[in-house]
Write a protein that binds this DNA or RNA. Sequence first.
RNA 1: GGCCCUAUAGUUCAAUGGAUAGAACGGAGGUUUCCUAAACCUUAAAUCCAGGUUCGAUUCCUGGUGGGGCUACCA
Length: 616
Amino acid sequence: MDLKLKNEFIFVPSNILKMQVIEHILTFHIREAVKQLFGKESTNDQIQLQKTRREFEGDITLVVFPLLKLSGKSPDITAVQIGRYLEERCPEVTRFNAVKGFLNLVIDSGYYLKALNSILDNEQYGFAPIPKDASTIMVEYSSPNTNKPLHLGHIRNNLLGFAVSNILAATGLKVIKTNLVNDRGIHICKSMLAWQKWGNGETPQSSGKKGDHLVGDYYVKFDREYKKQIESLVNGGMKKEDAEKNAPLMLEAQEMLRNWESGDSKVHALWEMMNGWVYDGFDATYRRLGVSFDKIYYESKTWIHGKETVLKGLEKNVLVKKEDGSVWADLRDKGLDEKVLLRSDGTSVYMTQDIGTARIRQDEFAPDRMVYVVGNEQNYHFKVLSLILDLLGFPWAKTLYHLSYGMVELPEGKMKSREGTVVDADDLMDEMVTTAREMSIVLGKLEGLNDAEKEDIFRVIGMGALKYYMLKVDPVKNMLFNPRESIDFDGNTGPFIQYTYTRIRSVFRKASESGIRIPNEIGENIDINAKEKNLLKLVHEFPSVVKAAGEAFNPSLIANFIYDLVKEYNQFYHDYTILKEESEKLRDFRLVLSRAVSDIVKRGMELLGIEMPERM
RNA sequence: GGCCCUAUAGUUCAAUGGAUAGAACGGAGGUUUCCUAAACCUUAAAUCCAGGUUCGAUUCCUGGUGGGGCUACCA
């Protein structure tokens, strides 16, 4: 599997599905035009439609260059001839103009108004229904270690995984969200050992600490004491490398891991107790983030299946055993290295565990696609995983897709746990909500609400700011998270979008108070202006944006679309006092348009996992 | 060394191979008798370098340069 070839992993889509209805209509007519005018058949690929740029008159533009081979005429003549044909034969096209090979088409407002009517009563506008025989897609995300709390990087992972799952479901797929908890290994043993030595029986109940933080504190404690031991060994004349391997604490931790693997009951009891604390803590964090899972796997339960699978592969001679007993996959003929799968002492490595987990999932759910939301530092790992599964003869090896995302960096530089520059997920969420509270109180727009209602709004705003900020960036890119800037609620941010939404809701409240009802249908011969038409076009575009975001596994397409819509709406909104519009027909139209915009904004944001407040 | 990702205004982000590369923040200036001014308007400011493919390249290819990651019998 070559991770570069993203197209291989696109499964739902055809270009036709992704298109807006109007583009579909135009494509049909343009192909007819080419046939009639030039006597040649064209393909859908040759019909290149795009939004008309603002400085030209028109709504949709045909790029005529690809058709020149068929017409055998100059760009301008080709464009004008097709334009005339469309003007005459295609009722949706009212006018056209041709500029340097670009055929700008003016689409009849009635078309968009009709489209607006058709979505008014459609609760599911933009979302595809899930058919009975829908493909199943499994999305793994979060996948934490149980030795420390979640941090900023996990937030990006969780938000991305959850949003992508929502979007895929909206495109008509059956989605299973899964979490693979890495609950075993040397890391958790370090926390356990430190707790045993220095914990004095501390529990989340006794100390009031959140469980994952408590366990994380002992992980830090271990590291600190371990460093001290190394230092004193080095001072005593030992080489640093040897000191790292022979520090008594490390030897003890390794012994504990061996005891765990051999099933020592005391070690297991401690392990279960401390993991339990961590899970309680994680659950709280997940709830706050608003993410959820349909199925949770634990590596302590899946690793053994990986080992079995590898041993079978050895029997079938697709894997090799070296003299020291270690088992390897040889991928050199595929341009990669050899990869160890079982150590010489027979224990399994990360890759082995992932092989086991993949198999179990396949047995249990047989998903048509398996998406791993994991950071880009593991690009190589997933490339190798897929190749090895293929080597082992699993036909579903090619259904794996690594949704790789970039690191989250801070203005001060990289996050390093050892230097204490990690931004803790819980702390960050607190900070976001606190800032939302402070800013809202200064603005004082929440009078008449009780404290619980206000707190809920602060939470929705703070979390919305965080989520939107994380999701508006293309996943593949590293991103900079600036805590100060992120809580500056201006510009392309979640709160800006939420604010516009609440203003629309406010209009509806006022309308309702003065006895104005939002109609369920509007006439199709309303004289609308350019701003209104632009809004209508964006509303019409929503379903294809959702589709495109699903195909690309990229929530940022939706985020940026909603921002465009909201900006466009703000300009529209600024020009009118909707409720005081003297013409009832126009007022109703503007109310209906506002409702369509607010519905889409809400639906889009909810796909991203962002709640929308009614007031703020 | 090898492999992968990435490079766009001062900064953070956009742009299915299409027209004069869009926003936001920050900078400069302006708008409130009007449904929430957390808004709106005006303004200055950018495609890392060199080749190639193409009617057309920020986008695709090659080679550099900068940044990040991987290259563990860690996970």
